[in-house]
Design a protein around this nucleic acid. Structure first.
Lengths: 114, 114
DNA sequence: GTAATGCTCAACCGTTTGGTTGACAATGGA
DNA sequence: TCCATTGTCAACCAAACGGTTGAGCATTAC
C-alpha cells in the first residue's frame, strides 16, 4: 500500500480528523458493539451508501477500523488500540487535576523539607 | 456571541477538529506548561502570526483555550475540562479490554449462578 | 442465465481549511 | 510626539471535506 509510512504526528492527524465528524463517531459507537457489514452500518444514516463507504475509508486510513472481505460482504471491525493512542495523547496533554497537583506538591514538599 | 449554542455532538466536532492539526496540538502542548501570550506561542512555528492567531481562534471556539486581554497582550490559557470531554468520549467508545471483560464476565456469572 | 445484492470507484460540486499578504487599531516606550 | 509592539480583521488562494450521482464489478439467489 505504501500508505502506512506514518510518523506519530501524521497518525494523530488522521485519528483526530477521523473523530471530528459525528457520522464517523456514530459508526465507531456502533462498531463498539461488534463487527458489522457496510449496508448494516449505513442503514441508520440519511445518506447514500457511497457517503458511508467514504467515511469508512477515513476510519480505515486512520487505523480505527479493519475490513475483512468475505464474498461480497465487507465486515468492519473496530481497532481499540488506535482509540487508546488518542486517549494517551489527551492524557499526556491535560494538565494535572487539583488532587494530582496536591499529590505532586506533597512530593515536592517531602523532598525540599525546609 | 450566539455561537455558544452547541449540543454535545457539535462540541465534540469542534474539539476533535481542533485536535486534528499538529500545529494546534503543539500549541496545546505548550499551554499545558502554563499560560502564554500570542507572539510567544507563535515563535516556534515557521508561519505568520496571523496563521497562529487563526489556530488560536479554532482552539478558542472549541473551548480548549481561554484568552484574557491585558493592555495589548492577549494571554492564552488551557481549559483542561474540554480535554477531559474528549477523553470521556474515547473512554466510552473503546471496547472493554480483556481484563475488563473478565471482570464483567465474573459479574455476570455471579448473577446467573446456574 | 438473469436478476438482485453488496460495495467500490470516478467525477462533480459547494463549503471549509490552512496558509498567505496587507491594512489597521490599540497600547507602551523613547 | 513618534515609533515599535501586539494582535486582529479582511481578502485571497489552493487543497481537502462531505456529500451527490452514475457506472461498474463480484457474488449470491432464483
Amino acid at each position: 500500500m505504501s500508505h502506512s509510512v506514518q510518523n506519530n504526528e501524521e497518525r494523530l492527524d488522521l485519528i483526530f480528523q477521523a473523530l471530528a465528524n459525528r457520522t464517523r463517531r456514530a459508526l465507531l459507537a456502533r462498531l463498539k458493539r461488534g463487527p458489522a457489514m457496510v449496508t448494516e452500518l449505513a442503514k441508520p444514516f440519511g445518506m447514500s451508501l457511497n457517503a458511508v463507504s467514504k467515511h469508512l475509508n477515513v476510519l480505515e486510513r486512520a487505523s480505527l477500523i479493519n475490513r475483512s472481505i468475505e464474498g461480497r460482504v465487507h465486515t468492519c471491525t473496530l481497532i481499540p488500540a488506535t482509540i487508546t493512542t488518542a486517549e494517551k495523547w489527551l492524557g499526556a496533554n491535560r494538565p494535572a487535576r487539583p488532587n494530582e497537583v496536591n499529590a505532586l506538591q506533597k512530593d515536592l514538599e517531602s523532598v525540599s523539607e525546609d
